[in-house]
Design a protein around this nucleic acid. Structure first.
Lengths: 232, 232
DNA sequence: GAAATACTTCGATTAACATCGAAGTATGAA
DNA sequence: TTCATACTTCGATGTTAATCGAAGTATTTC
């Protein structure tokens, strides 16, 4: 009946605990092997393989072959976004005993949303860039203004090679903790990589938390001050 | 293992075809009875009842008793948002043969997103309001500026009673067709009701499509012109 | 070439749950 | 009171699919 809401299939795919664990693990942005995902999900390799095939068939995941390993990663930002929204809902909503762990405040502060920075610090950065008119986020798809381009370049990020990529440079991504935007797209990814390279922050293992060092956070807040000074 | 991603339960809840159909039907924003939802999903009343209990227990739905009827509706904007994002993904993604019907362009143009206006026209409205500085959408949660308040009042919408409600007045909601924002919250709801009351548009049955009449669309575009004139 | 690693495919088992008939409750109508 | 409508609860059935052991393929190491 009706031209079926395939939302059901999508839900069913995400709805299995093993698959949900795998997808969550991949939200870190890293590519993981089948074995790693199996242990992450707490199932045997055979079972994992079966799940991964389904996820790949549905184009939620992509599989890269490298030597005798298969590396899996999310098929794109869109699924990352779907998962982020669902996680946000499930978490916010006491829902089904989400038993918010001790690490939760850290998660709200800074986390990886697929492959870019989300959480309070992500929002802070986005706000600052907007307030300085580095982003043309008014209605239209988010873009970098000329002033924004030189700002980004001054940080030491190479824009030129990114602009040649097929991936959109900037995208906004709605945060669940507060209903505010943070920066996704290839620029968002590049900025996160930049912070990690500069050792301002590091990824906690098996978690989406980004832990800023004391020094790193200071540098970060220095670069993206809040409250922002009036632009001039 | 791990403090379980309850995203799995959420996915499983949405992942059953019958439940997905019911939830989709409720995206129209209307409250529906158990019988209506049963026929919508193509199952018997008993089966529907079982599903509805589960959805209520998970707090995705609320149940209102009225005479011998039970009216069900989505428990809030958040689930609406989750569903919208998932539908967007499933649809955009050729995914599992979503066989985009002939009505699809209409859906992209104007549809109801739980209870407010989404699609191209929704984005147009949001853009116009932003460009006129009626919305203070910079970073912070979206709010109405004083100029915005008088604009809304001039349309003939009573703001005062809305401001007393516990529901947020304005919220932005990310659109899936284009990655752009449209207006949710109680103001978003009120605006949609306003258009329907004025007969500028009507809801198509069993669909999320909002069909604007020729006259109605003209009025709408008159009120929210695009491209927007420079604000002065 | 042999053995180990990394993974996939096959097949059988099992558990979960969607489904509906039948019977029960509550509300409204005659 | 009686009947009808709207729905819920219970119980039985059947289907689906998650799981893992066993065996197979591919790749690297020795």
């Amino acid at each position: 009946m009706k031209e079926g809401p395939n939302i059901a299939m999508l839900g069913a795919l995400i709805g299995d605990p093993a698959r949900a664990n795998m997808l969550s693990a991949l939200m870190s942005g890293k590519a993981l092997t089948a074995s790693e995902l199996a242990s992450e999900a707490g199932v045997t390799l055979q079972t994992a393989s079966s799940h991964l095939s389904k996820l790949e068939a549905a184009e939620l995941l992509i599989r890269r072959k490298q030597g005798r390993h298969r590396y899996f990663s999310l098929a794109g930002d869109e699924i990352g976004h779907v998962l982020e929204v669902m996680m946000g809902f499930a978490a916010k909503h006491g829902h089904m005993r989400t038993r918010t762990g001790p690490k939760d405040p850290a998660l709200r502060k800074a986390r990886v949303c697929y492959n870019h920075l989300a959480g309070e610090l992500g929002v802070t950065m986005f706000d600052y860039l907007s307030s300085q008119n580095y982003l043309s986020s008014v209605g239209e798809e988010v873009g970098l203004t000329p002033a924004g381009e030189s700002f980004i370049s001054s940080i030491g990020i190479n824009l030129i090679q990114m602009q040649n990529s097929r991936r959109p440079l900037c995208k906004s991504c709605l945060d669940w903790s507060a209903r505010r935007s943070h920066l996704a797209g290839s620029l968002g990814t590049a900025l996160l990589s930049h912070f990690l390279e500069k050792q301002w922050a590091k990824r906690l293992d098996n978690s989406r938390i980004i832990e800023f060092s004391k020094h790193g956070e200071q540098q970060f807040r220095n670069l993206f001050p809040t409250p922002p000074p009036s632009p001039n």
